[in-house]
Amino acid sequence: MGRRFDHLGDVEVFVTVVEKGSMTGGAIALSTTPSVLSRAISRLEARLGIQLMRRTTRRLSLTDAGRAYLEQARAAFSLIDDAERAIQGPEGALLTGHVRISVPTTYGHYRLPAMLDRFMRAYPEVHIELSITNRNVDLVAEGYDLAIRLGPLPDSGLVARKLEDAPLRLVAAPHYLERVGAPRTIEDLADHQCLPFVMPSTGRCAPWLFRVDDRDVDWTPPGRIRVFDDVLGVVSLAEHGLGICQTYDFIVRDRIDQGRLVDVLEYARGRSRPFSIIFAPHRRLSAATRALIDFLAKDG
């Protein structure tokens, strides 16, 4: 009787190539060459009798069958990891594994580093692959274990655990306000240089959120300068005196304490936006991924 699972090495190659995003990245991770990995995936596809990947000179993409197989393969490897930890007992109970996470620039630069520092101290054998981008990645197709996202989440079938409601502040540089004067009302903002951010998902400027007399007010800022792709750009521009922006308290708190920025329309503060961890409900999460989700949700 032949071995039933002598192809597991090829399965591991397939999972690694997807997670690394290319044959070259997979080859570096597995200390081999792209041609070796390409042959391994071809063997796996021949064994299954179905195409898992579309391969061109520039990119790789999964077929529908490839996405389904990736999910099951990752779940199987997670089961093997858990089984090994279970039989090793207390002496081998040190948590190990890799976690791939995607976060937006706001969280990746200002909130997550301190959280990850505490997590890595608690779990020194866990490895993190961190993508800091404002692009909403496809968790399944791109091989991410989890992501942190901003705002109310659409009904996408993903599971979400809220991290926090992040308070918002309207700010400007002191020398900007000295030059043009400070607005007294929301309506006065129309006469100022506002610095709106264009949301990648809609192509529209993100509204500024205010609370006035216990009433929520959403106001869409005009602007001669509109920032695309990286929302942190509005803060940099505001700090250099180019106008007024709305951003998160955790981003500008130090700048305000240092006098580099000041609050504008403080009477209209009180709104926030939520940040959440998301992950696929049908994926069997590794112990390391579950530990990171629980840690961030508790720490957030």
Rank of each mutant, 00 (worst) to 15 (best):
I148C: 05
M115H: 02
I128S: 00
L146Q: 09
E164V: 12
L130S: 06
P124H: 13
A166D: 14
I128Y: 07
K162T: 11
L153K: 05
R118N: 02
A114F: 05
L116H: 03
A122M: 14
L158M: 04
L163C: 14
E164I: 13
R118C: 07
S131F: 00
P113R: 10
M120F: 10
N136R: 09
G151R: 12
V140Y: 03
L116K: 02
D145H: 01
D165P: 13
M120A: 11
L158A: 05
H175F: 08
L153A: 04
I148S: 01
L139P: 06
D165N: 15
A166M: 10
R169C: 12
L116F: 00
G143K: 07
V159E: 14
K162N: 09
E129H: 00
I132K: 07
R169I: 03
P113I: 02
D138W: 01
A172W: 01
V137S: 02
E125Y: 15
A122K: 12
A147Y: 04
E142V: 06
Y123I: 06
V171E: 09
I132W: 03
L139D: 04
T133S: 07
Y123A: 06
V140D: 06
L168N: 11
L170E: 14
N136Q: 14
E125P: 07
R135C: 08
Y144L: 12
M115A: 00
V137R: 10
R149A: 03
R118K: 12
P152S: 14
S156T: 13
A166Q: 09
G157M: 11
L168E: 08
R121N: 11
R121S: 11
D117P: 01
H175A: 00
L146R: 05
D155Q: 15
P167D: 15
S156C: 11
V159S: 14
V137A: 09
D155K: 14
V137K: 04
V140K: 12
A114T: 09
P113Q: 01
Y144G: 02
D155R: 14
Y123H: 10
G143Q: 11
V140Q: 08
